[in-house]
Amino acid sequence: MSAAMNVPMNVSVGVVQFPGTNCDLDTLDALAEMGARATLLRSDETSLGGVDAVVIPGGFAHGDYLRTGAIARFSPIMDAVTSFAGAGGPVVGICNGFQVLTEAGLLPGALRPNAGLSFLCQSQQLIMASVNHVLGYGLSPSEELSIPINHFEGNYVCDGATLHRLRANGQVVMRYVDNPNGSVDDIAGICNESGNVVGLMPHPERATSELLGSTDGRKLLEALLYAAASARQAGSHHAA
């Protein structure tokens, strides 16, 4: 069954906005177009307001002055996000959001400057490595997607033991077909062991229309809505 069919309506998704976030409105628009009730959550808030899923979008949280995501990790909203994730709530970090999730300890590893120290903004071919996570509904392992990247620090790194666990547990979400940034094992996205927290460097909100060059991003965002609806029905998390 394709995730593009019968997308659940009225799912509530909170999009976290830090000072310096710049992909928040794009993400809101993309989710709203798919029927979600998408709302902004400011970084100084202490509650998620009863949302069914959380997205931490791309940008430059707090200017990335210290280290990408390092300051954002201490924002009041992140305590609520951490509790929500711990209760099984779907959480997705895109680009800078991925960096924030690693800094917060919700995902293993870290993101370093790209190999070659070049900022990359280009369409990228990706291969799904697993589908047992909140972005996997309706997708197949080895399915290829075209989604753009837009980052300077997207080089995913981790130690050997962590990489072994990621592979063994099916926590590698997607890989680059042609690795643009030097990420270990061509990793473009990973999830936690439970599969409810996902971080990825590509921007699915920028691949939701043929006018943008690809609709493949819709598959990932629609999968998130399915996961959020399923989690709400199962009562696997509570509003933070």
Rank of each mutant, 00 (worst) to 15 (best):
M1C: 09
A3Y: 02
M9T: 13
V11N: 11
P19Y: 04
T21K: 08
N22D: 03
D24H: 06
L25P: 00
D26P: 06
L28K: 12
L31T: 07
E33C: 07
M34L: 15
A36G: 12
R37W: 02
R37S: 05
R37T: 05
A38L: 05
L40E: 09
D44E: 11
E45M: 11
T46S: 10
T46Q: 07
V51G: 09
V51L: 09
V51Q: 11
P57E: 07
P57W: 06
F60L: 03
L66H: 05
G69Q: 09
G69K: 13
I71K: 04
A72P: 04
P76I: 03
D79F: 01
T82I: 10
T82Q: 10
S83N: 02
V91P: 02
G93W: 01
L101A: 04
T102D: 05
G105N: 07
G105H: 06
L106A: 04
L107F: 08
L107T: 08
G109Q: 13
N114A: 08
A115N: 02
G116S: 09
L117E: 14
L120G: 00
Q122M: 12
S123A: 13
S123M: 14
M128D: 00
N132I: 00
N132W: 00
L135N: 06
Y137I: 07
Y137V: 11
G138T: 12
G138L: 12
P141S: 07
P141N: 09
E143A: 14
L145K: 03
P148Y: 01
F152Q: 14
G154Q: 04
Y156H: 05
V157M: 13
C158Q: 08
D159I: 01
T162C: 15
L166P: 06
L166C: 08
R167I: 14
A168W: 02
A168I: 03
N169V: 00
Q171D: 03
V172E: 09
V173F: 15
P180R: 08
G182H: 10
V184H: 09
D186G: 06
A188S: 11
N192K: 05
E193V: 07
S194W: 00
G195E: 09
N196P: 02
N196D: 14
E205A: 11
E205W: 04
A207V: 08
T208N: 06
S209D: 15
G213Q: 11
T215C: 15
R218M: 13
K219V: 03
A223W: 10
Y226K: 06
A229H: 14
A231Q: 08
A234W: 01
A234S: 14
S236I: 12
H237G: 01
A239I: 05
A240M: 03
